[in-house]
Amino acid sequence: MNPSTDDLAPAGTGRARAAKRRPAPAKRAIDRLDGLLSGAVKTGLWVWVAMLVVLTVWVVVTSLKTNGEVFTDPFGLPKSPQWRNYRLAWSVSGFGQAAFSSVTVVAASALLTMVIATPAAYVLARVNRRSADRVITYFAIGMGIPAQALVVPFFLMSNDLSTFMTEWVTGWWDDRISLALIYVVLSLPFTVYLLTMYFRSLPTEIEEAAAVDGAGPTRTFVEIMVPLARHGLVTALVLNIVALWNETLFVLIVVGDPQQRTLPAALLELYNTMQYTSNWGGLFAGIVILVMPMILLYLWAGRRIVQAMTQGAIK
């Protein structure tokens, strides 16, 4: 868990070995090859990036075309941009409602996950007990259980919950609340694991100083550790938001009414009816509606994710 000093030893010896192993002429040839290779890889990376940009631009341009143009002129610009594709996708194909469901369900479950996982991860990272390591492993097992293994029981439980709440407690229920709760459960193992690793990478001196100053553990946690860990917390939050935003399987299974479903399900539904509607421009508008929020989120938080990883979030 401690980088720096220990790790340097093998690298040091390696470096020494590398330096004295090869005679000069052969080495020059290899160096040239090395330069060639790295040139090729760099070019490859830029091509890779270019492909992504081209694809994105192409999707956006296609979303503004008429059906005819989508097929007859796949790479041209639309004669006049068909903004109605968006209007139709938003209102007729239900992307407006779906966007509302996506935002509320994902926001609620991602935040609730953080509230539950953060304290647990903190104590798991800091408490020196044997059981802590076992509990961490116990949570890590959950990361390896495919969500598909939980489809059947979750379906049964969400039905029971709905019936129970309607008949005994509130008089109403919304499948999207069940979905949000399922999302919390599904996100928990990964979030606890990730945050535990992150808290471990943070220095202990500050907490010790706080303890010396007489701060209790709760105050230390809330006022010192949480702000200190904010990069890790944002990373976990963003990774969860991304995963949940794109989740499709459980929406289809838990939420019965298509009008309450989230964006990926709306896109799939639109795609499935393409043979009846042939609204290709609208399909691409749907893709843009589904994908854009994540790109914007990434533009905002991408640097932080990379930063947090750099600080050892995933190690």
Partner: peptide
């Protein structure tokens, strides 16, 4: 459940 997580709870 007080302090900082509170905001999260209420938002959720």
């Amino acid at each position: 459940r007080g302090r900082l997580p509170r905001a999260g709870v209420w938002l959720a």
